[in-house]
Design a protein around this nucleic acid. Structure first.
Lengths: 145, 145
DNA sequence: CTATATCCTATCGATTTACTAGGAATTTGT
DNA sequence: ACAAATTCCTAGTAAATCGATAGGATATAG
């Protein structure tokens, strides 16, 4: 079980935007350059972030992206879910509470509760971490640049 | 982010073995039949469980698999990790504590702690759930069959 | 011996992941 | 008006992973 680069890069994009919140629109190229990532790839990710209403885009020269909400109002969970669809450990259980179980009817789905519990715990965890928590780190140099 | 069938099926195998702990070796075929899963596929999973020293195999007719430890001594984390390699949200961080970061040196890896934190939390969670917790459920019919 | 099992290796179709390519549309500055 | 910068959109693609299948070698109970 792991998070993919989609989630990882997306959080990086959002952190980058948080740190440059006072600089007006930030171009994706500058973000890609700073983190040494593919701009085209990030493009697809930030498209989802835009659809999820987490960032606002400004087209044209000197354009770029701006956070749509305060970093204290955006959770890591929102970010990851917007690009990954869901953080559910097991797909089917994210859709519905009843597990589409293929077991013998006599055999109970003893593991069902486990996945629901894991799913909820992971979601709770990422929903408790705000973008502002990642930016305001001791020893960070937000005041320098 | 999700757990795959590898982890899910493996837990099902282990729960099945737990419930039949007094019946001697349990054949994989019977497990596959009960849960309506592919025996060949489970074979690959239980191979990992054996390597991880979670089950013992008995070859030949009337053979099968037996739990190597008490269900109260086996965690869900051990099971999932043995078939999935790692439960780390991000691969690199499971190997080492230092993130192999490709960022501009001036740009700090602000998200590093996040993934470490997530990894540790998920691991902690699955390591706190024992096989015995999944079997001893209220309303379960372990006494019937 | 034979049936029942585990064991081992190889393959395979489908899906997802990470990434690339190319161009249309929009806006700023000259 | 024009050029440069930038978002926006679609399509494709190589590699990895996932879920599963196939076929046979090895071992053991009866």
């Amino acid at each position: 079980m792991k998070f993919t680069t989609r989630g990882r890069y997306s959080v990086q994009i959002m952190v980058d935007l948080s740190r440059r919140i006072s600089e007006g629109p930030v171009s994706l190229k500058s973000i890609a350059d700073r983190h040494n990532l593919s701009e085209s790839y990030l493009e697809q990710l930030i498209c989802e972030l835009r659809k999820a209403d987490l960032v606002r885009s400004v087209r044209g020269a000197q354009g770029g992206y701006v956070l749509k909400r305060d970093p204290g109002q955006i959770t890591v969970g929102e970010i990851i879910r917007s690009v990954a669809g869901s953080i559910a450990p097991v797909d089917c259980e994210y859709q519905t509470e009843t597990l589409s179980c293929s077991c013998d009817p006599d055999e109970q789905c003893l593991t069902r509760d486990l996945w629901v519990r894991l799913r909820d715990s992971v979601n709770e965890l990422v929903d408790s971490i705000f973008l502002s928590d990642l930016v305001k780190k001791p020893g960070d140099r937000t005041d320098v640049d």
